[in-house]
């Protein structure tokens, strides 16, 4: 089982992940239409780039936009959650040892306590995000089973990985569960709206260009996001 999930399945998962995202990227760019979108992408490139950069950067900075500041509590959850998801797996010591063993290189690793803190914080954030979904009527009305399932898909690898690493319960079970759930997540990224991992940037760039080129970018300092 371990061989299968770390062998062929891992190849499949990573292929789907990378090729899926490449396909998403190509599909998105090809689908942009200056006349239907009413944004002249091909002209005024300077304004377009500036608008796109402003749009992406403002939203990547915690509390960098009016919206992030307005929903200050939720913003904290969102950033803790996303930082945990991205930083932890990439810079985890265990993952990097594996990387070195298989591919002969590694990235700098996070100290264990930091990785643990990020993981736990991310899971707590996920819990509150889930509770918020249920508690607030304006979010509850939007929530579907799909949203909850995706949240579970994302949290499971972290939960199982945490248990496996700290050898709580049956190590080999949690390890396989961890690898498997991680692969499910990777596959889910391009196929579900987890694709926002990429599309966030594309969509933000697009609306940034929209404001930068068409909706006032040429006549103002740029939209104060």
């Amino acid at each position: 089982m371990y061989e299968f999930v770390t062998g062929p399945l891992a190849w499949i998962a990573f292929s789907v992940f990378f090729f899926g995202l490449i396909w998403r990227f190509v599909w998105y760019i090809r689908g942009l239409n200056w006349q239907l979108d009413r944004v002249s992408y091909g002209h005024h490139t300077g304004y377009g780039v500036k608008g796109a950069a402003r749009s992406i950067v403002s939203w990547l900075i915690p509390y960098g936009t009016h919206s992030w500041r307005f929903y200050s509590g939720f913003t904290l959850l969102v950033f803790v959650f996303h930082i945990g998801i991205i930083i932890t797996p990439i810079f985890l010591l265990g993952h990097n040892l594996l990387l070195e063993e298989r591919w002969g290189f590694r990235l700098p690793a996070l100290p264990d306590p930091v990785a643990d803190t990020l993981t736990v914080a991310m899971m707590i954030a996920a819990l509150f995000i889930m509770l918020r979904r249920i508690a607030l009527p304006e979010v509850r009305i939007l929530t579907t089973f799909y949203d909850i399932a995706l949240l579970l898909i994302v949290v499971t690898p972290f939960f199982t990985g945490f248990l496996a690493y700290h050898q709580i319960g049956d190590y080999s079970f949690w390890l396989i569960a961890h690898i498997l759930s991680g692969e499910i997540m990777l596959i889910a990224v391009p196929l579900t709206k987890l694709s926002h991992a990429l599309l966030f940037f594309l969509s933000r760039a697009q609306i940034g260009m929209d404001y930068g080129i068409k909706r006032g970018g040429m006549k103002s300092q740029g939209l104060p996001w």
Binding site: N33, S195, H196, F200, L202
Partner: peptide
């Protein structure tokens, strides 16, 4: 014919977070 990647993406990736509510 007219629903291209921009709008399709918007419809699809909406995180259902409700941050548009108070706007």
């Amino acid at each position: 014919k007219s629903l291209k990647s921009r709008l399709r993406t918007w419809l699809e990736i909406c995180a259902r977070c409700g941050m548009c509510a108070d706007s």
